[in-house]
Nucleic acid binder design. Structure first.
Length: 205
DNA sequence: CGCTCGATATTCT
DNA sequence: GAATATCGAGCGA
């Protein structure tokens, strides 16, 4: 049985947590229409770190607001926001004691459990089209505003992350889709995975 | 494979 | 008004 990541794991530098989350297993516990619990899960292959007022690309750069306040709270909570008028993005808060705010955006997973549910949620069959991007990932796992602020360190939480072995090679690149602080290489990917978001394939030589 | 473009709600200036 | 931590379709090579 894999161990659910606890508060201690998330209570460290946002960038360190983002790097180490690559390879871990993201788990969504849902109730089926029949009334029993089942899992949707996959291996995290792509993340990005967003800090607080020191990070010009972060939602938290201007201080706490109604949207971003979870980023300023305890580590290990879900931070879900709506963007581009169409998509939800899913993050987990992560920060050391000295940081004011921080969260890790989960950008892609390799589907492993509950793939039929993911296919239904996405309206697609191809495994590589299920959760290879932050908006796709949220849709595949049935994540919306209702999951904002969930404590992901509690056993049986609606969403949590389980420990798993790290991949061989984690590449660091600039974050995707931002216009500020583009020189910081705070995006982390399993370079050998086939399930990265489509804007982000690393050229492997 | 890669590029461009339109959609669309919320937040920011 | 403008920008946005995006996606999918449509196009050309």
């Amino acid at each position: 049985v894999n161990k659910v990541l606890e508060s201690k794991f998330y209570s460290r530098s946002t960038v360190d947590v983002a790097r180490e989350l690559v390879g871990m297993r993201l788990v969504r516990n849902i109730m089926t229409m029949a009334g029993d619990f089942t899992r949707i899960a996959g291996i995290i292959v792509e993340t990005e770190a967003y800090e607080g007022t020191d990070d010009p690309a972060s939602h938290a750069r201007m201080g706490p607001t109604s949207r971003n306040h979870v980023m300023f709270g305890p580590a290990g909570r879900s931070y879900v926001y709506f963007t581009y008028g169409n998509h939800f993005c899913f993050n987990v808060t992560a920060k050391s004691r000295s940081q004011l705010a921080g969260a890790v955006l989960l950008r892609a997973i390799e589907p492993l459990e509950g793939t039929e549910i993911m296919k239904a949620n996405r309206g697609r069959e191809d495994l590589r089209m299920l959760a290879s991007g932050p908006g796709r990932l949220a849709q595949a796992l049935g994540i919306d505003r209702k999951l904002n602020g969930v404590d992901m360190t509690l056993p049986g939480a609606e969403i949590c992350i389980e420990a798993n072995a790290a991949p061989k090679r984690v590449a660091a690149t600039p974050r995707i889709g931002i216009t500020r602080a583009t020189r910081r290489r705070w995006r982390f990917v399993d370079a050998s995975s086939r399930f990265q978001s489509r804007y982000s394939r690393i050229k492997v030589r």
